[in-house]
Simulated scan of single mutants.
Amino acid sequence: MFMNDNFKVLYWLHINQVKINRTYICPATQQEIGEGLGFSLMKVNAIMQTLRQEGYIDKYKNSRGRYVITTKGKNVLKIFSESTY
């Protein structure tokens, strides 16, 4: 699942996180994510749905344009960052 654009979106969310109230979130709309990666809005929407359904990300307090990476997502990021060395 993560040798493709799904990982690119997850990684983009990771590197664009900010800390708000002791929680790391990515405050970006799907349009902004698409612009940052060169993906269409439809593509980003499909990837985000997949990442949410598989439990890698979630919406922050059910708000639009704010995403959190779940423990499962953080584990994937850790595995890939360790395997690059």
Results as ranks from 00 to 15, higher is better:
Y60C: 05
E32Q: 11
I57W: 06
E54T: 14
G38I: 00
E35K: 11
G36A: 02
M48H: 05
F39T: 00
K8I: 07
A28G: 02
P27S: 10
K8E: 13
K61P: 02
T50V: 11
M48G: 04
M48L: 12
S40D: 10
K19A: 13
L37T: 01
I20G: 01
H14E: 08
E35A: 04
V18A: 10
Q31C: 08
N16T: 07
T29K: 08
Y11D: 11
Y60V: 00
K61F: 06
W12N: 07
L51I: 11
K8Q: 07
I25H: 01
Y11I: 00
E32H: 06
I20K: 08
T50H: 14
Q31D: 11
R22H: 15
L41M: 10
I15V: 15
K8C: 13
G55K: 09
Q49E: 14
K8N: 06
I57S: 03
L37A: 05
L13F: 03
L41V: 10
L10F: 01
V9K: 04
D58I: 03
I47S: 01
K59G: 05
E35R: 07
I33A: 05
Y56L: 05
M42G: 13
I15L: 10
I15R: 09
L13N: 02
Y60P: 00
K43D: 13
I33L: 07
H14Q: 04
G55Q: 06
V9G: 00
L10G: 01
V18I: 10
K8W: 13
I25N: 03
G38V: 05
G55T: 04
N16Y: 09
I33K: 00
Y60F: 11
R22Q: 13
H14Y: 12
K8T: 13
Q30V: 04
Y24H: 05
Q53F: 13
K43T: 11
C26A: 06
I20N: 07
A46G: 12
V44Q: 04
Q49N: 15
N21C: 15
F39M: 09
Q31S: 15
N45W: 14
T50N: 13
I15Q: 14
I57T: 01
R52N: 14
Q53V: 09
K43Y: 03
N16W: 10
Y11T: 02
C26H: 03
E54L: 15
T23R: 02
T29G: 08
C26R: 03
N21D: 12
I47P: 00
Q17I: 03
G55C: 12
L13W: 06
N21K: 14
I20S: 06
A28Y: 14
A28R: 09
L10N: 00
E54A: 14
T29W: 09
R22W: 15
A28F: 10
K19W: 12
G38K: 08
Q31Y: 15
T23H: 12
R52I: 10
K59C: 10
I15K: 09
Y24W: 05
K43N: 06
M42T: 11
H14I: 00
G34A: 06
G38D: 08
K59R: 14
E54C: 09
I57E: 00
Y24F: 09
E32I: 08
A28P: 00
I47F: 04
L41S: 09
N16Q: 04
Y56A: 04
Q30P: 04
I47H: 05
Y24Q: 05
L51M: 02
E54M: 14
